[in-house]
């Protein structure tokens, strides 16, 4: 059994390491204990700004700090970042101020808090903003590594982390992880499964099951939704001739939308999208939610077979 960890812990660990840069500041909206920025706050209270339960203000305090040469990391629950969407749009993205926003507890995987907490649209909405990098890593190691790379971007970002633990894939493999570069986790020639976040390990399980049926699948961790690794996608479409996307996010506008938008004009191939159907969630455990929403490995393998069957 592999090590289990939550991606939000990777975020918290990254902030602590980034603290060596005196320009890094942390902004909180009363959820630092949950998003894991609390470790930075304890170590560096003089560079941590409590914004109370006020997300709109927090985003723009970050913009003001960024305009003054600081590198602000702001976090709250993914769903509450959306309350400040226009601040992110007009106050951060438009002037291209490098505020780094982290939304934790994203997706239906967040579980028993119920539908009000289960952001299933964050990746879609932030992806529409010019200048904004959008990421949804799958384990604590990659979350930490990707977060540590953010200050060198010089542009704003949104990163979704998850509340609950998932299998760790990248222990000792930190040097494979780069913003904007998908990671090929297994090689196959019949179908490419492109996943992000908590569904990456479901995609791995799906590939194993498909292998038992004689189907070879490539699995990609597409942790960066924007900018999308289009070179890799084109290679996969040519090599495999069928693509499945998988995400704990609305079927509308997320990773599946991004991949489809690209492939339709570059290298159209049969494609299936695994995502949350056009509906809200409810209170249930993480695994129960994935099953309820059709996001488990068996859903992914079924979609793979469907895509393969559609090849000309």
């Amino acid at each position: 059994m592999s090590r289990m960890a939550a991606t939000r812990d990777g975020y918290g660990a990254a902030l602590l390491e980034l603290a060596d840069n005196p320009k890094v500041v942390v902004l909180e909206a009363d959820l630092g204990k949950s998003t894991k920025s609390l470790h930075f706050r304890k170590a560096h209270p003089e560079r941590t700004v409590s914004c109370g339960i006020g997300e709109q203000n927090m985003l723009l305090v970050g913009a003001g700090l960024a305009s003054s040469g600081y590198i602000p990391f702001a976090s709250t629950f993914a769903i509450f970042t959306e309350r400040a969407f226009e601040q992110m749009r007009n106050g951060v993205a438009r002037p291209n101020l490098a505020v780094h926003l982290c939304g934790s507890h994203g997706g239906t995987h967040t579980g028993t808090d119920g539908s009000s907490a289960q952001s299933i649209e964050d990746l879609a909405i932030y992806r529409t903003l010019p200048n904004v990098v959008v990421m949804h890593p799958c384990d604590d190691v990659s979350t930490k590594e990707l977060t540590k790379q953010l200050p060198s971007l010089g542009q704003p970002s949104y990163t979704r982390t998850a509340r609950n633990k998932t299998p760790v894939l990248y222990d000792g493999r930190e040097n494979e992880i780069r913003i904007g570069k998908g990671i090929v986790l297994s090689e196959g020639s019949d179908v490419a499964i492109v996943a992000c976040g908590v569904l990456v390990h479901e995609a791995m399980d799906a590939a194993k099951a498909l292998s038992d049926e004689g189907i070879s699948a490539t699995v990609v961790d597409m942790h960066t939704i924007k900018p999308l690794d289009t070179d890799l996608l084109d290679d996969l479409a040519k090599k495999c001739g069928a693509v499945v996307t998988a995400e704990d996010h609305s079927i509308i506008g997320g990773l599946g939308g991004a991949v489809a938008e690209h492939l339709i004009s570059s290298h159209p191939v049969p494609m299936e999208r695994i995502g949350v159907p056009d509906r809200f969630g409810e209170s249930a455990g993480s695994e129960e939610m994935l099953e309820m929403m059709g996001l488990k490995s068996h859903h992914i393998s079924d979609a793979a077979k469907k895509a393969i069957a559609s090849k000309v």
């Binding site: 723009l60 003001g64 700090l65 305009s67 003054s68 602000p72 601040q87 007009n90 106050g91």
Partner: peptide, 28 residues
């Protein structure tokens, strides 16, 4: 708009945003 005009410190246009931005400048 700070990206267009010398001497402009904030890209405005949406009401209610400038005081928060100013707070960030003050903290910095």
């Amino acid at each position: 708009d700070m990206k267009w005009c010398p001497g402009v410190d904030f890209s405005a246009g949406s009401l209610g945003m400038g005081l928060s931005f100013g707070m960030g400048c003050a903290v910095a």
